[in-house]
């Protein structure tokens, strides 16, 4: 019998919500922690623009819009996928992946959606508010078409990040311990929250090339923000969407490949 994935998904999310509500104090503290981090980043931006009027052509409202976009992407990714990717290493090391493999449902689905991190969702309204504030402050002309494209590109960016981190997490099958995932996520995000134009010179240019064409983390916030408040080219957008689709397919192939090498760890 074919499993009913929508019901499984709802059950997963319900379980996670119940878990979060069991430790309400913990949940509230996490929400404050998430929003606090955003506040500190905004302080940093304020400090930057107290010293300069633009950063490689990005004015303060444009930069704030980029920051808001970045927040939307990270918030969605962390809510839906980060914890799921992160726990893959633990599942492998402790042999608990066995319990996922024996279930009569798609393995990638189970690994991808079992957890949802509701506390990370707190930055979604903050990101929307920041984008709105920046758009009003900058007086940007935003059409309905641009808004639809913006939402589509944010979704694409989130899928792209998922595929890349999922594949990285799968390396734990060979490395056994893979604690670099949170560091990788932190650094990928610290790369992608800045305007792509700052990546100049030999080191910057190389990093730009790698982060746009090899591991395309740089575009996940830059491209949607450019669509709304700066300029964009259609071929680049098409390439971005195609790259996300390819990465998603590759993540599935990588899982099958990794499972062939999985040896379990239980006695």
């Amino acid at each position: 019998m074919r499993p009913r994935y929508s019901r499984i998904l709802l059950r997963f999310w319900k379980n996670c919500l119940l878990r979060e509500m069991t430790f309400r104090g913990h949940f509230i503290l996490r929400v404050f922690g998430e929003v606090g981090w955003v506040f500190l980043l905004l302080v940093f931006i304020e400090v930057i623009f107290s010293k300069t009027s633009h950063v490689r052509g990005w004015s303060e409202p444009q930069y704030l819009f980029l920051m808001g976009t970045h927040m939307l992407v990270t918030s969605l990714f962390e809510t839906l996928f980060f914890e799921n990717c992160w726990r893959i290493s633990d599942l492998v090391r402790k042999g608990d992946l066995d319990f996922v493999l024996v279930k009569p449902a798609n393995t990638q689905f189970l690994l991808t959606f079992e957890r949802i991190d509701f506390a990370s969702l707190a930055n979604l309204p903050v990101g929307i508010a920041l984008c709105t504030y920046a758009a009003i402050q900058g007086g940007f002309t935003i059409t309905f078409g641009h808004s639809v494209l913006f939402v589509l590109l944010i979704g694409t960016g989130v899928c792209m990040l998922y595929a890349m981190l999922f594949m990285f997490a799968l390396t734990s099958v060979w490395l056994i311990r893979q604690t670099g995932l949170d560091a990788l996520w932190f650094y990928a995000m610290s790369l992608s929250r800045y305007p792509a134009e700052i990546y100049r010179g030999f080191a910057g240019g190389t990093l730009w090339f790698v982060c746009v064409f090899v591991v395309p983390v740089l575009m996940v916030a830059n491209l949607p923000a450019n669509v709304m408040v700066r300029t964009f080219t259609t071929p680049f957008i098409i390439n971005f969407i195609v790259a996300a689709a390819v990465l998603l397919i590759l993540s599935n192939i990588a899982l099958r490949w990794a499972l062939r090498s999985y040896r379990s760890a239980s006695s």
Partner: peptide
């Protein structure tokens, strides 16, 4: 990795500052 980004960001800030 972040040190490269930080250097590039500050280069951009100093270039834009008077």
């Amino acid at each position: 990795i972040p040190i490269i980004t930080t250097i590039l960001l500050w280069r951009a800030i100093y270039d834009g500052a008077d």
